[in-house]
């Protein structure tokens, strides 16, 4: 599904150059549940942003579903994104001015789904994440766990092939965190590919493969429950 070859991302200011990703090579197959781990500043989120086409690499190639996306225009990326990818963020990123249902409905609006279908689909998804009773509330009226469930609902409402979750449990307590992970697990069981950035080894254990990063490089890839592949992919 995803193939990254020698992918690099460098941030430049007037006098400092920071290499966020350094010649990353990574393949992700459909149906996988990947956890990306590593210390702060190692490039996890940058990698996730590039995977989600929210950011573009400086060099290297990125194939998504067999198609190179590194040279796509912003408009083309928006189309690929809305058709295939759902996002979950640590800070939920819900629009405060919209209700729960309206937040979840948003991706469907951009897919120009008819109103009746949208309402049905939103209801289904809200029920699935067990937040339907709060459909008319505003995000600020919900607990953190509830807000993240809304964010999950929004991420899955379009039935994406891929869900990118950036520390989805980072702002949640253990119970709520577990609940969100279980939701992700269910989605994965239903066939959705999931890439999750996390700090927590326990949470990473929900994944089928863990990618360890350090200083912008992939340090190792473990298949959960199987002998770690202990190699540095790039010199």
């Amino acid at each position: 599904m995803i193939e990254l070859h020698d992918l690099s991302k460098v941030y430049r200011t007037s006098d400092v150059e920071t290499t966020a990703l350094n010649r990353i090579n990574l393949e992700i197959s459909e149906g996988e549940f990947i956890a990306i781990m590593g210390p702060s500043g190692c490039g996890k989120s940058t990698l996730l942003n590039i995977l989600g086409m929210l950011d573009t690499p400086n060099s290297g190639s990125y194939n998504f579903l067999g198609q190179g996306v590194e040279n796509c225009s912003e408009r083309e990326l928006a189309i690929v994104r809305k058709q295939n990818i759902g996002f979950i963020f640590q800070s939920f990123n819900l629009i405060d001015e919209l209700t729960v249902a309206e937040n979840v409905e948003l991706p469907l609006l951009y897919q120009k789904m008819p109103a009746k279908d949208r309402a049905e689909r939103v209801q289904q998804v809200l029920e699935r994440v067990n937040i339907a009773h709060r459909a008319d509330h505003r995000p600020q009226q919900l607990s953190g766990g509830q807000q993240q469930r809304v964010a999950v609902a929004r991420a899955v409402v379009t039935n994406p092939n891929l869900i990118l979750a950036d520390e989805p449990t980072g702002n949640l307590d253990t119970t709520n965190g577990e609940e969100v992970l279980n939701l992700l697990g269910q989605l994965n069981s239903d066939g959705t590919t999931i890439v999750m950035v996390t700090h927590d080894q326990g949470h990473a254990d929900h994944a089928s493969r863990v990618v360890h990063m350090l200083d912008g490089r992939v340090l190792s890839e473990n298949v959960v429950g199987i002998q770690p592949v202990s190699e540095v992919r790039h010199a």
Binding site: G52, L54, E74, R75, A78, I79, R81, K82, Q83, F87, N93, L94, I95, E97, L106, P107, Y110, Q111, R154, T158
Partner: peptide, 14 residues
Amino acid sequence: KEVGIRKVVGADRR
């Protein structure tokens, strides 16, 4: 933030 979210869920600039 709203701009970011809208873009994430599929809005294009237009």
